[in-house]
């Protein structure tokens, strides 16, 4: 878990009929060091996804011929387990639920910020198998999930329940960039934009508790994007 900077090149399939959007996705993911294949039709996408052994798939919700929902359903029926990030111009709550029920793993509304998309892809790529760990460790930071106690270098850190949930989420995704939207979604469970700098305030508090008096900071701000917890800045 502590090897946060392990950057394995991932194979990603982008199924997107809009050339401009497809170009943006490919460019952004390539910056992050991934190998991206892009196809523009649903049927071709299905073929590639079934045979290509990809690590993650980005899927447009509305495609000619074969619609995104049907596609993801067929993939799951065929036993393909690769995480699917659905991208849709439809922002309706019901639409999102439908996408996730069909077998999608995450859902983003177009237009989206590419860095947010990349951050979500990273999370999908490093989604750990559902193993039950009782203690999370990043560097000298420890979070005991059973006793709900946090320690840094042996010293106890007092956490409020909300701060505990926040740190839990950050540590589970250590080394990954997490946007404010992702944090709000995961820790608070809401999908709307909370506005202002409310997430930043919570992060600042947590950072004070975790990094105060330490020579090495663990919580880093990623400019213009979000946060990352890890040993290296």
């Amino acid at each position: 878990m502590s090897a946060t900077n392990l950057r394995r090149m991932a194979r990603i399939l982008t199924i997107e009929d809009d050339a401009v959007t497809a170009g943006e996705i490919v460019a952004e993911l390539q910056i992050h060091g991934h190998q991206v294949d892009s196809v523009s039709s649903g049927s071709e996408g299905l073929q590639r996804a079934l045979t290509g052994n990809y690590d993650v798939i980005t899927l447009d919700r509305m495609l000619p011929e074969l619609d995104g929902l049907t596609l993801v359903k067929r993939l799951r029926e065929a036993g393909v387990r690769a995480p699917v990030l659905m991208l849709s111009a439809l922002s309706d709550v019901d639409e999102r639920i439908r996408g996730l029920r069909a077998g999608g793993d995450d859902y983003m509304t177009k237009p989206f910020a590419p860095d947010e998309m990349a951050a979500r892809i990273e999370v999908l790529l490093r989604r750990e198998p559902a193993q039950q760990e009782t203690v999370l460790r990043v560097g000298d930071l420890e979070l005991d999930l059973m006793s709900r106690a946090a320690r840094r270098g042996g010293a106890q850190i007092e956490l409020l329940p909300l701060e505990f949930r926040l740190l839990d989420y950050l540590m589970r995704h250590s080394g990954q960039v997490l946007t404010r939207t992702m944090i709000f979604e995961a820790v608070w469970g809401y999908r709307f934009d909370p506005g202002t700098n409310v997430i930043d305030v919570h992060m600042a508090r947590l950072r004070r508790k975790v990094d105060a008096g330490q020579s090495l900071s663990l919580i880093h701000t990623v400019r213009g994007c979000g946060y990352r917890l890890g040993e290296s800045g």
């Binding site: 943006e24 910020a113 860095d115 400019r223």
Partner: peptide
């Protein structure tokens, strides 16, 4: 307007990352 704005933001973001802090 959101689509070009999102692209504008993406380009600004890329620019910002390429420059020294």
């Amino acid at each position: 307007l959101r689509t070009p704005l999102t692209r504008l933001r993406a380009q600004l973001y890329r620019l910002q990352r390429e420059r020294p802090e």
